[in-house]
């Protein structure tokens, strides 16, 4: 959601070597509404020989309060997450917006807190959005091709403008045989979710979402794929309400299902 643009967005990130262990920050949206996506992340990484650590005390990055103008409340929530990720492992986040919050806004939230700032900064440096982690660090081999299919990709604004990972998901999907990935009209435009924006300005949010869904449907894709749980809540809710057959799926779920070797 929130895009911090002070960091040079074109500066390419240096990626670590493939690690033996990672943390998973599952996000509050996936926790409650799409745990399958979180489990798929684990399955994908374990298949590549990576141990995934999921601290049970994690809850939320604090973004809802932060973007609504409640930094103290965001800080209170974020402060509880910090010690859970104190090791050296990379932190994989299957969401551009939560990743952006942790990578760009946590250091600002704790800028005046000398006790927590070093940890917040260390976490910020280790946060990797799932698609960039898979593409640049894990470099997975896909054991199974999957059937011919046409999917449409929706990229979140945070992945695009805050994490600068908007090409990662596209590049990953391009590695899969028999898969046609199409882009919708006005591909770079927001889906209209924006967290609290969808509640504060429901008509605007609905109008933007409706146009996005029109564009997604116009591609005649059988599935929509996105690496951001927030956008998926919004777009699937809109698709379902209008009775569309199209549904969006988290990138992790899609990748895992499609490339799972037959049991």
């Amino acid at each position: 959601m929130s895009a911090a643009l002070n960091e040079a967005p074109n500066c390419p990130r240096r990626y670590p070597a493939k690690p033996t262990d990672v943390y998973l920050f599952g996000t509050c949206v996936l926790d409650l509404f799409d745990p399958e996506a979180g489990v798929s992340v684990v399955s994908l990484l374990e298949r590549e020989g990576i141990r995934v650590h999921y601290p049970q005390d994690q809850t939320c990055c604090g973004q809802p309060a932060y973007t609504s103008g409640f930094p103290d409340q965001a800080r209170a929530v974020a402060a509880r997450q910090l010690p859970l990720f104190a090791g050296d492992w990379p932190i994989v986040v299957p969401s551009g917006s939560c990743g952006g919050m942790m990578r760009h806004h946590w250091p600002r939230l704790f800028a005046d807190d000398p006790a927590l700032l070093p940890l917040a900064t260390s976490i910020a440096e280790r946060v990797l959005e799932l698609s960039e982690f898979l593409l640049h660090v894990v470099k997975p081999r896909w054991p199974r091709a999957g059937a011919a299919e046409r999917v449409v990709l929706h990229t979140s604004c945070s992945a695009r403008r805050e994490m600068n990972t908007h090409l990662s998901a596209r590049a990953l999907l391009a590695q899969l045989p028999n898969l046609e990935v199409v882009l919708q009209d006005h591909e770079a435009e927001c889906c209209g979710f924006g967290g609290a924006f969808s509640v504060k300005h429901p008509e605007l949010s609905a109008a933007i979402a409706s146009d996005k869904v029109d564009a997604l449907e116009a591609t005649a894709a059988t599935r929509m794929v996105s690496a951001d749980g927030g956008c998926l809540l919004n777009l699937n809710g809109t698709l379902q309400k209008r009775g569309s057959a199209l549904r969006g799926e988290h990138l992790a779920s899609f990748l895992w299902q499609r490339t799972q070797a037959p049991a």
């Binding site: 959601m1 929130s2 895009a3 643009l5 973007t67 609504s68 604004c157 945070s158 695009r160 403008r161 805050e162 770079a188 435009e189 927001c190 209209g192 979710f193 924006g194 967290g195 609290a196 924006f197 969808s198 504060k200 300005h201 605007l204 949010s205 933007i208």
Partner: peptide, 10 residues
């Protein structure tokens, strides 16, 4: 509040 903070403006 009338922004999804999509960042296109910035």
């Amino acid at each position: 509040t009338a922004s999804s903070l999509c960042g296109a403006c910035g």
